[in-house]
């Protein structure tokens, strides 16, 4: 454990808390892509099946359970809560997210640390997480104004994997750890946010409302 890793996980947790606060206090999921949230449920379920096969960890296990529970809760709110579901921008959430799943599954089948059920699913979850933000970014681009909580949510979600990159650099030098699959996927994942980061920081510096061109 190092400071980058701890900060990364806390940032990830904070992003989810921000989203839940937005949904619960404003009773609205406007600006949030259900397709991205669906993909996160799939990501967490396929990655954390190891809850059943791996010894419990005082640090990892609670995080895994919280990520699973919160992602399912968010999707539940957006689909079934009688007030929240009416605020969902269904017509703008146009990204064909099913087309992300098959390529990630094929990639995981061929590129994995070990050809076992758990390891292929783990690889699938790493690849799918890298691209799961795409429907959300497409939805934000079609939004004329983005509320602060939504902007902060996406920023924290992007910052979390960027902090993992620092953690991986640290571990490479301090612990000789080499893990190509999450490194490359994490790099792609962070790169997808580059545009968003640019406009987020610009709007923050100019004290303006966030808007993507």
């Amino acid at each position: 454990m190092n400071a980058f890793r701890l900060l990364a996980d806390l940032t990830h947790l904070l992003s989810i808390i921000i989203l839940l606060v937005k949904i619960r206090t404003t009773k609205s999921c406007a600006g949030i892509s259900l397709k991205t949230q669906d993909l996160y449920v799939l990501v967490f379920i396929s990655r954390y099946l190891d809850l059943f096969t791996r010894p419990l960890s005082l640090y990892n296990t609670p995080f895994k359970l919280v990520f699973l529970a919160t992602s399912i809760t968010i999707v539940y709110y957006m689909r079934y809560h009688k007030v929240v579901k009416q605020t969902y921008n269904k017509d703008s959430d146009t990204f064909k997210h099913y087309f992300l799943i098959l390529p990630c599954a094929v990639l995981a089948f061929f590129i994995n640390p070990k050809f076992t059920f758990i390891e292929v699913l783990w690889s699938f979850s790493i690849y799918l997480e890298a691209v799961a933000i795409l429907p959300q970014l497409v939805l934000l681009q079609s939004s004329s104004n983005i509320d602060n909580l939504t902007g902060n949510y996406v920023f924290m979600l992007g910052a979390y994997r960027a902090l993992y990159l620092l953690n991986w650099i640290y571990r490479f030098f301090a612990e000789d750890v080499v893990r190509w699959i999450p490194w490359i996927a994490g790099l792609v994942q962070t790169a997808l946010y580059a545009d968003f980061f640019y406009y987020y920081i610009k709007s923050w510096r100019n004290n303006e409302r966030l808007k993507l061109p």
Binding site: D9, H12, D50, F63, F67, P113, K114, E119, Y164, N167
Partner: peptide, 10 residues
């Protein structure tokens, strides 16, 4: 190695 990798990250 034939051991599955140890995924110690989230």
């Amino acid at each position: 190695s034939s051991q599955p990798p140890n995924h110690d990250e989230l």
